[in-house]
């Protein structure tokens, strides 16, 4: 089963479950004796709904959710903000590391350049072993 199908199935069951609960809430909010049969039906739908959701568990055992996402949901915040912040943090860190790597490359190049002036023979040997470094 494709990844999206797995989620679609769970989503569908969750939506049905939520809708059933909502209808149950409406029945209960202004209860009439004649509504008892409908209420009983809804209660059993709730049980079957939970059974259906539980069945989805088998298909989704390989899915892991970061705990931080729950923090967002618990605070009533959009969990997409977590994804957004993760991506932004990843990019910022990526840029920072790239900056460090580039600086180190420049430093190496300058060091080799300066060492070549002082130790031309040794540096020639060094370059023979290492090969010419590409410019940073």
């Amino acid at each position: 089963m494709a990844m999206s199908e797995k989620f679609d199935s769970l989503e569908e069951h969750l939506e049905k479950f939520v809708e059933n609960i909502r209808q149950l809430g409406i029945i209960v909010s202004d209860f009439q004796p004649s509504s008892q049969a409908g209420l009983n039906q809804k209660l059993n739908f709730m049980v079957t709904g939970l059974q259906d959701i539980d069945k989805c568990r088998q298909q989704l055992h390989d899915i892991s959710v970061p705990l931080e996402v729950f923090e967002y949901i618990d605070q009533g915040r959009n969990p997409q903000l977590y994804t957004k912040e993760c991506l932004e943090r990843a990019l910022a860190k990526n840029e920072q590391v790239k900056g460090k790597i580039d600086t180190m490359k420049k430093f190496k190049s300058l060091l080799i350049q300066e060492l070549t002036k002082v130790f031309p023979e040794d540096m020639a040997k060094y370059k023979a072993i290492r090969g010419e470094d590409p410019p940073p």
């Binding site: 809708e19 909502r22 209808q23 409406i26 029945i27 909010s29 202004d30 209860f31 009439q32 004649s34 509504s35 409908g38 039906q41």
Partner: peptide
Amino acid sequence: PEHPGVGSSQA
């Protein structure tokens, strides 16, 4: 009051 929304459409 009448029977409140049992059917999905009514609900």
